[in-house]
Amino acid sequence: MKSREKAVRMTLVAASCVWLFGVPFAAHAQSRVTLSGIIDAGILYANNSGGHADWSTTSGQLTASRWIMTGSEDLGGGSHAIFRLMSPFNVQNGHGTGRAFNVAYVGLADDRFGTVTVGRQWDTTIDTVSGFASNETWAGYIGAHVGDADNTNASFKVSNTVKYASPQFAGLSFGATYGFSNQAAAADGSSGFANNRMMSAGAAYARGPFAAGIGFLQADRPDAQPAGALGAPGAGVYDDYENTFSGSIASTAGVQRQRIWLAGASYQFFGALTLGGMYSKTQYRYLDATALTLDNYEANLTWQITPAWETGVAYIRTSGRYSGSGTGDAEPGWDQINLGTEYAISKRTTLYLIGVAQQGRHAVAQIYGVTPSSTRRQLVVTSGIQHQF
């Protein structure tokens, strides 16, 4: 989850929610619903987008624009019933971005035993590792590793999930997520249990100035059928799984299996400087028996210049290896530099400026969210304003 979601929230008692949304129910004295959200808009420049310079307006470059509604009911003894609904939208045209709710879950939370939620939500690696990547903090969506193949941008959420998150034990926490295929049988009559399912697990540690995390994710046959854990082509809704590498370069074949391993850490010096980094390995196995491995190495430094002003720099090196008939055993690679600064002009409103420069090695440059360059180099700069409510 983006750190920018730490919004200043407007809290309403349950009875007020009944009035706002017209849903009749008996209000509980210990229940509450919180409405919050993020509005993020700006301008983006790309020096080469498919061979041409491009100026465009943007929505949600630092953090996706969205409405958020959360609820909690005190059940006593340190237990709560909880829910979250999140609806993204495009500031520039007022439209939604596909699903009515990109995140929607309900569950139980207990101070001693942890939290269990059911619905559509982030996988566990987003909780334990992605925060060590610069794009998850100050570099925005364009600062993601190539194609966001390791999902540190949370480009895809997971449907049909059951998720567990532990409480902290002396700084240590852990969790796991399982996304069901929701298919009893495949078209050929075989079991559909693994057709578009997802599983992930991870652990995190934080104590004083030091923090670290690890995670693993596996997606099986994400293109097999549209009602499973991940979005699939032809599903009739926004397909948030598709990316640069979700199809084989040797044919039109989709993914048989995707695995992601991640590890990250950070250390804060002098109360203002944070040195961090992460490593991820993504493996795609395609239905045509070809494969791709991507290794991402990132080092980043964040400087909290004043309580209101933060700036950061990151270097990312990506190495890829194709294998199998028709791939030519190609070894594409990319080097990327992220620069970003943001200034909070109030508790709710932030101005930001982000620049990303990338150079391909045996590959064209393709900064995330922008049409690939016609050359090995690409520069993208975006500036905007974000308001939290």
Rank of each mutant, 00 (worst) to 15 (best):
I82A: 12
Q336S: 10
A149M: 06
S251I: 02
W122H: 15
V356P: 11
F169V: 09
C17T: 10
D148Y: 08
S319G: 06
V364Y: 04
E298P: 01
Q121C: 06
Q61D: 05
A165T: 15
A176W: 06
H52K: 13
T382R: 13
P372V: 03
T341R: 03
T341L: 06
R221V: 00
D111E: 12
L230I: 07
T306N: 11
A170Y: 12
S65N: 09
A133V: 03
T97I: 05
F25H: 15
T318F: 04
T306S: 09
D329E: 07
A201W: 14
G42M: 07
N153H: 08
A29L: 14
N90A: 01
A357N: 07
T137R: 13
A46V: 01
A357W: 07
V91P: 00
M198I: 15
D54A: 13
S200E: 14
Q225D: 04
I39A: 13
A100K: 12
A291G: 08
A204W: 06
G369Q: 02
V237Q: 10
L301D: 00
S323R: 12
M1P: 07
G189I: 04
V23A: 10
Q336F: 05
A15K: 06
A253M: 04
A204T: 08
G208F: 07
S248P: 03
G51E: 02
M10Y: 15
G189L: 01
G340H: 12
S16F: 11
A144W: 03
H387E: 09
V381S: 11
A46D: 00
T311H: 11
R120Y: 11
G51L: 04
H52T: 07
E73K: 05
N47W: 13
Y286F: 15
Y352D: 01
M1F: 01
A144R: 11
I39E: 04
S130P: 09
T341W: 10
V364A: 08
S65H: 12
V313K: 07
P332R: 00
D335C: 12
Q225V: 05
S65R: 10
V237R: 13
S200Y: 12
T115K: 15
Y279Q: 10
G71M: 12
S134I: 12
I82G: 09
L230G: 05
G192R: 10
E331P: 05
V91R: 01
G236L: 03
W261T: 04
V13T: 12
W138F: 15
A104G: 09
G171K: 06
A212T: 06
G277D: 08
S155Q: 13
G107Q: 13
D148H: 08
